[in-house]
């Protein structure tokens, strides 16, 4: 039962990933990427990693995809960006990158067989277990994550609203400059 579900989900994930890189319309690519993310979330659930699955849906399929769509809207893509514009050098680089990925995957698979899986707690990936570890053992990284998010806020606001703080007092309208 589980293996059938795995095969179906993995096949949909692979097919939609292939669609992402072959569609001519970038919007279609992004929507297929959402499908890929959902399939990966299902695979996470099958691995017992519920929290990561929830994050995959909430953060990746939800928030990051919104960002991707907004970037497409900002880029002013007119018409479909076809394959014709891609130079052979870029195709060569793409194959080189794929080859490197294959090398890493093979190297990992060779060690994966000998990894100890039986000793792992099957409850390890649940939200509850994750909360235990995050809020006690990894307390400091958790708090530092908020500084990282703060940096993202200040960075984007500073880049988009390029006006010195001193001028803000005079301009109550808050005009976009």
């Amino acid at each position: 039962m589980e293996i059938i579900l795995f095969i179906i989900t993995a096949l949909i994930a692979l097919a939609s990933a292939l669609m992402v890189i072959t569609r001519k319309s970038p919007i279609a690519s992004v929507l297929f990427l959402v499908l890929t993310f959902v399939c990966i979330a299902v695979l996470y659930v099958m691995l017992g990693a519920q929290f990561i699955a929830a994050m995959q849906i909430i953060v990746y399929a939800g928030a990051i995809m919104v960002l991707f769509l907004f970037v497409l809207m900002l880029l002013n893509l007119r018409g479909n960006q076809g394959w014709e514009n891609i130079s052979p050098a870029r195709i060569g680089l793409g194959f080189a990158a794929a080859g490197l990925l294959l090398l890493v995957a093979v190297a990992w698979l060779k060690t994966a067989g000998s990894m100890e899986v039986a000793g792992l707690d099957p409850e390890m990936g649940t939200v509850s277990a994750f909360g235990d570890v995050l809020f006690q053992r990894f307390l400091l990284p958790f708090e530092i994550a908020s500084v990282l998010l703060l940096g993202a806020i200040i960075g984007v606001v500073a880049m988009i609203k390029r006006k010195p703080l001193a001028e803000l007092g005079e301009d109550k309208e808050g005009k976009v400059s």
């Binding site: 928030a63 984007v156 988009i160």
Partner: peptide, 9 residues
């Protein structure tokens, strides 16, 4: 729009 999207994330 991008600013709002980042802040949302």
């Amino acid at each position: 729009f991008y600013l709002v999207a980042i802040l949302f994330i």
